[in-house]
Amino acid sequence: MEPVVNIEGLHHAFGKGSLAKPVLIDINLAIQPGEIVILTGPSGSGKTTLLSLMGGLRSAQQGSLRILGQELTGAGKKQLVELRSRIGYIFQAHNLLDCLTAQENVRMALRLQPGLSYDDRTTAATAMLDAVGLGHRVNYRPDNLSGGQKQRVAIARALVTQPKLILADEPTAALDSQSGREVVQLMQRLAQEQNCTILLVTHDNRILDIAHRIIHMEDGRLVRTESPTAAVV
């Protein structure tokens, strides 16, 4: 089976010419379907940059970057936009639309899926909000939800389209340890049910145990891979 993520010799630099500052250096990484991988590393080591490249939010410059079977190096804007709709993103800040209710926010992701009727979208959105434990808050706007609840709506939005790949950048950073833990376990459970792959960036040591693999990044390089038991110790 083809890996969901297959990166070979990826380089990335910000700035041009002599001012170019390398941020990712010779990254090689393959992630198999169903794997949960945690990426850790000091601030500024390039984790977010790597994630944004994998999500097609930035154009890849050099090396090979295959996501869900699509080569991203040299891909056009249209292909990037198309890929984005097939990936579930969970951001550090929840990034919900303030003017929409929880259900409408989740629908925004579904609206891009072809062949779904209005009622299909209602069913899917409510079911997913139920699954994240917000069945009683479907018509609340973000202003009236707690931080953890907002993050759970964001997870529902990322998962409702049943993406094969989820990219999450410090999804628990804004949450207390209790709700942070709940949010991650929720992701883990839903990912197993939908058989999707998760790449999660975190500084939070308490959630490392959900991963199959933990990768350390330093100064733009992947330096070490560990199993969760080793890392927790």
Partner: peptide, 15 residues
Amino acid sequence: DHLSEYATLKAIGYS
């Protein structure tokens, strides 16, 4: 005011 919201929509696949 909604720049980050529009950026989010772009990130989840809106053209």
